[in-house]
Each structure stands twice: as structure tokens, then as C-alpha cells.
Design a protein around this nucleic acid. Sequence first.
DNA 1: CTTGTCCCGTACGCTTGCGTATTGACTGGT
DNA 2: ACCAGTCAATACGCAAGCGTACGGGACAAG
Lengths: 194, 194
Amino acid sequence: MPNLNTDKPERSRLSAADWERAALALIAEQGVTALNVEGLARELGVTKGSFYWHFPSREALLNAALERWELDVEHELGVEVESAGDPRARLRELFRRIAHEVQPHRVYAALLRALDHPRIQSLMARVSQRRMDFLALAYRQAGMERSAANHRARLTYAAYVGFLQMNVHLGVPRLSQDDYEAYVEHVIDTLIAE
Amino acid sequence: MPNLNTDKPERSRLSAADWERAALALIAEQGVTALNVEGLARELGVTKGSFYWHFPSREALLNAALERWELDVEHELGVEVESAGDPRARLRELFRRIAHEVQPHRVYAALLRALDHPRIQSLMARVSQRRMDFLALAYRQAGMERSAANHRARLTYAAYVGFLQMNVHLGVPRLSQDDYEAYVEHVIDTLIAE
DNA sequence: CTTGTCCCGTACGCTTGCGTATTGACTGGT
DNA sequence: ACCAGTCAATACGCAAGCGTACGGGACAAG
């Protein structure tokens, strides 16, 4: 079993994982529909002939890339769950981080626009449900009733989804840095305080 | 006058407006990418030859349909603005109505997934901005400070966008009727009360 | 040196969907 | 009755993308 190489220098040969990573990068930048094998091959400096050695079809690549992404996301959520401290402060910290690190969520935002694909739809349903469950738990740990926590988690997640859409894809006039910070604090006060 | 029949009309002749209405119906149901002239022609019981008499291209049809939709939306917002009464109660009423009449917002939700199209992006930016301005005004009339009202309007609109995504496209496990009502009231209490 | 495996290139067929060209049929006005 | 304008059918060209067939070079093993 040769080649465990996971770096990214100009190798003369590619592996399936290279295609998957390139696919995710392309999805993040230009969406799922932009994922075509010839374009991707061109971007990697090879031709289709290479691709169809690694994958039987475009769908297979998409599925592999999605699977890889789901594992990443689940891992991130895992480390999030394990962090200790005051639950309310943790939530605030989570909000601020997400507000300032939009980049890692671009794949999520891109997949949000491809929900007609059944596999992507079920994937997103799973991921969203897990995240909402995490939020609901956090709200309960912060002292809310079970039902209120569930509703608040749903509202929070809806706000997150809409936030991504508006910031990543909609050309909504960007707020100034100060206004943006004030907005984030407003969201935190509205959704967490009480 | 205009025949709103969207089934399989046995009309012998079609007008450009018929194509536009059919296009909007198709967009609402299956998204913008599903809008292709041959499929639409099949659905209307004619062939492409008819289409290209009314429109020079697929883009022209899409633009005409979007223009028509924008006028509708603007008109709805107009009647909304003119309604009087206690501002807070009006907001609550607005929330409840949107929560229960998701159907008219399916076009918006579909367009949300086609923001890579520059024309759709600017259109959606305009519509969203107008609606957010309306919300901000309502919040100010309800007694909030200018800046807080703007932020709350942004948050509310983000929640609306996310709400649409989750309900229309994401297969998120549907809430029971009672849970859903409770959720809506929770949203109202969280975003309006104070 | 030969051989098999891995990775890639080239060339082709196929489907979908846009757009064009041409012809035909139905309509109302004169 | 005729004619111009309107709507529609048929047939074709064309580009994009997926997938296949097949061939070849590099490289390690024997």
C-alpha cells in the first residue's frame, strides 16, 4: 500500500482524494452545478481520462465529496460539544465565531442552493438537524424550558441559514465593520439574553 | 381578460403573458433551472416554434417573468404599508400570515437558489432591501431606536429567508400543527416583544 | 527484459437544450 | 374573396457535458 501522501504539491499523479478536495473547493466557490468533470480536470491539469479511472461517474465524485464534507462537519460539531464553560457564554462565543468566520460555511451555503438533488437534501437535513439539536441542548443548559429551547434553536438556525444566503450570495449592501459588529451583538442580545 | 388557468388549457392560441405565468408557476414548483422552453412548450401543449414567436430567447422569457413577479411583490408590499393600526399588532399579524401562507413565497424561495444569475441577484437584492426597510420602519413605529430597528429588521428577514429554505426545500421533519403554532408564537415573542 | 498495474490522453458517441429557418394555418379587416 | 398579421409545426444546426473505448507511458516486481 504505497502513497499516503495527503499534501498538495504538484504531484504528477492524482488520487481520488485530490479530486474530492478539488470538487469541494469548486462547490464552495461556484456551487454544485459548476462541478463538471472536464472543467475540474482542466483545473487539475489533466483530462477526463484520468477522472474516469478514479470514479465511475460524476455522481460518484459528488457523493464522495459530500461524504467527506459531512465527516468534517460532524467532527467540528463534536469538538464544539466537548467544550465546557458557562453555557450562555459558550453560545455567545459560538455566534461571534460564526459571524466572523464565514468562509468555512461556504460549502454549506452552496449546498443550500442544490436541495433539488435528493442526496444533498437528505444530507443537509441530517446536518441541520444535528446542529439544531446541539443548539437546543445549549439553550436548555442555559436554563430554557425544553419546548422553548427547541423553538429558539429552530429560530436561531433559520437566522443562520438566512444570514448565509444574504451575506454569501445576495449582493445586499455590505454593512460597515462597526455596523456589522453592532448587528452581531444585537443578534446575541435578542436570541440569547433573557 | 387574463385567464389564470395554469392546468392544461385547451386554448387554441397563447399570448406572451401566458408563457410568463406558466414560467413563474414552473419556477415556483421546480426552480429556475427547470425552466426550459421545450418542457414549458410541452406543458402548454405546443412546440418551440410558438415560443420563439413571442420571445427572442429563453433569457427574455425569464426576464419578463421576473419583471412581472417584481411588480406583484411590490404591489403586495404597498398594500401592506398602507394598513393602519397598532404597529406591534400589525407586525404580529404579518408574521402569522407569512407563517401560514407559505405558498405565495415559493417563487422567492426558488429564486433564492438561483442567485448566481446576475439579474436574479440584483432583483432579489432590491426586493429584500425594500422588505427590510419596511420591517425597520415597522419596528421604529413600535418604539425601537433607529439602529436597533435596523438590526432587528435584518435579523427578522434572515429568519424569514432561513424559514423558507427549511420549510420549502429542506426535508426537515415537519412539526405537528400544534408545535408549529407554538413555534410561530415563540418567534413573535422573541422578535417583537420587549 | 518482461510483465502487470496504475494513471492519463485522445477520440468518439450520445443526450439535452438553445436557437433558426421554413412552411402552414387561422384570423379579422377591406 | 383576399390579404396581412398572428400563432404554431417541423426540421435542422450547434454547443456543452457525460460517459466509453482504447491506447500508451511510467514504474515496480519478478
